[in-house]
Design a protein around this nucleic acid. Sequence first.
DNA 1: ACAAAACACTTGCAATATGCAAGCACACAA
DNA 2: TTGTGTGCTTGCATATTGCAAGTGTTTTGT
Lengths: 145, 145
Amino acid sequence: MTSAGKPDWNGCPTRYAAAIVGDKWCFLLLRDVLLHGKRTYREFLASPEGISTNILANRLAKLEALGMFTREPDPRKASSVCYFPTQKAKDFLPALVTMMVWATQYDDVTEAPASFAASYADDPAGTIAWYEAEIDRVDQALRRG
Amino acid sequence: MTSAGKPDWNGCPTRYAAAIVGDKWCFLLLRDVLLHGKRTYREFLASPEGISTNILANRLAKLEALGMFTREPDPRKASSVCYFPTQKAKDFLPALVTMMVWATQYDDVTEAPASFAASYADDPAGTIAWYEAEIDRVDQALRRG
DNA sequence: ACAAAACACTTGCAATATGCAAGCACACAA
DNA sequence: TTGTGTGCTTGCATATTGCAAGTGTTTTGT
């Protein structure tokens, strides 16, 4: 919040998005949760970018505070913890997928299959719905224990 | 580049996007150019976020190196400089607009008019086309001098 | 012609954030 | 009871940032 009591983004939607996405590690954690089905501290730590433990703890707290993740005990093992995406995070999927399509177009060493951009071009809503279904599948399986 | 000669994003489209967008200042400069018609150092400096001069110079160089901006003499005044968005930057517009729609939905103090989200919901392609036309209008007027 | 202003940066330095390695508290397992 | 896995926290060296001031070049005004 600013001294006037207004939030840092001050009403600008781009700045609101920048507060969450305009940070490399938050952005990649969002990817891990929305696209790669990761939910635990250990899984995040294992990502190839190599986030360090203090930064990971800091960003998980930030994303929880921003209402993107919920922190819950792991149903499979009480001593462990899961971070689940909230509806707000899931609603970010279209933006994330749109960025992936753009990146796939301009990155000449992309690992994304050509079929990804093609399937998005053919049916954007369907492509996003597929990712949403994957997220729900992961979370429902996890919560069942 | 990594020691193996592969780029930092290493083929991951999200990481490719993160290299550009996963930085508050690059993200906001992209907004200024794509959405607010800003093209000069002075205009960027005047944004309410208050970027400092060294960071601005650093990020303009970065965005130029990444192929997002071109640096050209100002046709109105030879001593001044303009930064124009490349096609790559313009193609990022759908992602930026998608993020704005998301932010407008979740930011309860948004300054974005309700008509923005409504018009996007009604005609996404048309909304993006409108922004694209604005960019071209600004750039063509500028280059005419 | 000359002085002053504008412009796009650059530099120095203090404050903040990051990366790395180690340590810690707790739960569970053998 | 000894060890292992898990999710952190802490200390410290290094890197990045923000701020203020300065630099060199080009206009502008008189």
